[in-house]
């Protein structure tokens, strides 16, 4: 696959723009938010389709319940907030009202991970993949860039069931040329760079750092394969099975229960003879700071990632 790190564009803009497109195609599509529509970009939809947008106010548990009720009247429902308040606050409503009944509700969460930045730990959701993927029926997807986010949102409207979509706050570097190039393949990992020595599997906004880390490794004579895993549940088991024997997971999420956790389950369950190095948030709370500085602080920038891999890969 051909990739090229491009301009910075926000996935949440892709979300808002795609919702507007989908609103035209699906008259039964409705959108909910909980007082963050300007930030999650659902305001774009609200402007175009005010009759099909419902602000739940700062009441996420009720928002999820309303989403369930709307879906039970045949609507395709997108419900949004920051990842912390879209997944953590109403977790039990998502489990019992939405997922247990397998309802057609998409939880589109923005502001995931440490890169939320200045707001600090209360708003830095680094456990959402873990708690969402533990719910039966729930699909968990973290788009890789702006273009793939568009494709993911579009796909999720066609899927009849609950989906959790994880997007960051900031503008992230694109790795695809356009939406066609980024076409989302549900449950399929994408190998974006071949390599014979080790395999880096990354998800979400941090992918450009993983790619740049692979370039640093190349200079050091280590040939790293790079795989991006947008669908975290169900995970592409075959991609993990086919990977090199030294695997590195890279994510802006706790190393427990996230992408690294999911990959380790595949390795253990299949009895694979692979070593896994999990790079992410090391089971700690975040701090305030600028997103790019925090990446360095938590050793999630390309140089730190490359350094860690060199240390562990012998």
């Amino acid at each position: 696959m051909d990739y090229k790190i491009g301009d910075k564009k926000a996935m949440r803009n892709a979300y808002g723009e795609t919702l507007v497109e989908l609103g035209k195609e699906y008259p039964n599509l409705v959108v909910l938010d909980s007082d963050l529509s300007g930030s999650t970009k659902t305001a774009m939809f609200a402007k175009q389709y005010p009759d099909r947008f419902f602000n739940a106010g700062i009441a996420e548990q009720n928002m999820i319940g309303m989403a369930s009720g709307l879906s039970l009247t045949g609507k395709i429902v997108f419900a949004s907030s920051f990842a912390m308040f879209a997944s953590g606050r109403p977790w039990e409503q998502i489990r019992n009202s939405v997922a247990y009944a397998n309802l057609n509700v998409k939880i589109a969460a923005t502001h995931s991970g440490i890169t939320v930045g200045e707001d600090g730990a209360t708003h830095q959701m680094t456990e959402d993949i873990a708690i969402m993927r533990a719910i039966p029926n729930m699909i968990v997807i973290a788009p890789s860039d702006y273009y793939e986010a568009k494709s993911v949102i579009r796909w999720s409207a066609t899927y009849d069931g609950p989906v959790y979509i994880r997007m960051p706050r900031g503008d992230t570097e694109t790795i695809f040329k356009d939406e066609e190039d980024a076409k989302f393949a549900f449950g399929k990992a994408k190998i974006i760079k071949d390599g014979k020595d080790l395999t880096i599997i990354a998800t979400g906004e941090i992918i450009p750092e993983a790619i740049k880390a692979s370039e640093i490794l190349k200079e050091k004579g280590i040939d790293a394969e790079v795989i991006i895993m947008a669908t975290i549940k169900p995970i592409d088991e075959q991609a993990v099975i086919n990977s090199n024997d030294f695997v590195v997971s890279v994510e802006d999420h706790n190393i427990i229960g996230g992408l690294g956790g999911a990959i380790s389950e595949v390795i253990a369950s299949n009895g694979l003879n692979k070593k896994l190095l999990r790079i992410g948030i090391n089971d700690e709370f975040g701090e305030s700071g600028k997103a790019n500085e925090l990446l360095k602080y938590y050793k999630l920038d390309s140089e730190s990632i490359a350094k860690k891999i060199i240390e562990e890969f012998k």
């Binding site: 309303m66 009720g69 039970l72 045949g74 609507k75 039990e92 009202s97 009944a101």
Partner: peptide
Amino acid sequence: EANTGSLGHGISVAVGMALGC
């Protein structure tokens, strides 16, 4: 009409349904 049992959920679902209707 809805999966209930966890208290407080049903009224929210009913609100969503009434909105949908």
